[in-house]
């Protein structure tokens, strides 16, 4: 075999065209899952091939790419994907949210408010919100076509009946543009409100399941709930130990084997920026930490 040269962002132009056609259809029908012929990529299915294909299809040479996983730029899979695009597309990359034009993410929405100049690409494992209630694809397709979503509310009803409240913590189903029920990907429900009326274009890629969907900018996105049990965001009741933020989603970090724990911002860039621009946050009692 001779040395290969790859096309810009790895995929050939035919494939990119196919994906873009699917994306256009998805944007035209917000929240609807468009089937597409997902390609085998150099990383395994389940590790972001859908997101990578969507990003590859929308990326241009002048774009600035940010890749995060669990909110952080430095998690191994985010590093791996960023390197992939640096190598195959030669695009500039960044960890700063407001500098990026394309952001590929797994399981979080950045804390920073996004702008019209940005595209957010979500990695999606299971695109079908009804899947766990109805395993058959033929049936779920019909349910979406006929807007038969009663069974979703049955699930929420059961949660309240048994637990007193809705017990979905992430991948919390939403209704898009008053029509399609959609799975926002396994982001914590804390992030759902950010999807509503967002200025950026939101694209969702599920490589293994071969589906693409989209939320155009400024689209209504409502989390499913009951009138008397309204949707609630959840975050740890604490401030970030590094930057003091009380409005960001926190990761719990175990610091010793005696039950010591602390909370830090999941969004690493957001946390860093806060620390750069603000004086050091007061340390919570009980930790002997000092700022590095």
């Amino acid at each position: 075999m001779s040395e290969r040269t790859y096309n810009f962002a790895y995929l050939d132009e035919q494939t990119k065209r196919m994906i873009r056609r699917a994306l256009l259809k998805a944007v035209a029908i917000p929240g609807y899952q468009v089937p597409f012929a997902s390609r085998e990529m150099p990383m395994p299915y389940g590790w972001g091939t859908g997101g990578v294909q969507v990003t590859a299809a929308v990326l241009g040479p002048d774009d600035m790419l940010k890749v995060i996983d669990q909110g952080a730029d430095d998690t191994t899979n985010a590093v791996s994907i960023r390197k992939f695009f640096a190598k195959t597309a030669g695009v500039r990359t960044t960890t700063h949210t407001e500098e990026a034009t394309v952001i590929q993410t797994r399981h979080r929405v950045p804390e920073q408010k996004l702008t019209e100049a940005q595209i957010l690409v979500y990695q999606v494992p299971i695109p079908e919100p009804l899947r766990f209630l109805e395993p058959r694809e033929t049936e779920t397709r019909r349910m979406h076509a006929l807007a038969e979503y009663g069974v979703m509310h049955v699930k929420l009803y059961e949660d309240i009946a048994h637990h007193g409240h809705i017990s979905t913590a992430y991948a919390y189903p939403v209704c898009v543009a008053d029509r399609y029920v959609m799975d926002p990907s396994p982001t914590p429900k804390f992030d759902n409100p950010k999807m509503d009326n967002c200025a950026a274009l939101q694209l969702f890629g599920a490589g293994r399941e071969k589906r693409i969907y989209a939320i155009p900018p400024y689209t209504k996105v409502v989390s499913l709930d009951f009138e008397d049990h309204p949707f609630e965001r959840y975050r740890h009741d604490a401030a970030c130990a590094l930057c003091g933020a009380t409005d960001s989603y926190l990761d719990e970090v175990i610091i010793d084997d005696r039950g010591g724990r602390m909370f830090v911002c999941s969004d690493s860039d957001y946390c860093e920026r806060r620390r750069e621009s603000a004086p050091p946050a007061p340390q919570p009692a009980g930790t002997d930490a000092s700022h590095a």
Binding site: V151, V154, Y157, E158, A161
Partner: peptide, 27 residues
Amino acid sequence: LRMSVSAGGNVGERLMAVGWRHYGRIR
């Protein structure tokens, strides 16, 4: 019936399917 759904959920399903959205009233 939906055997793994509660009696209340079984009875309430049709109501939820036609747009009832108040848990208390459904129950």
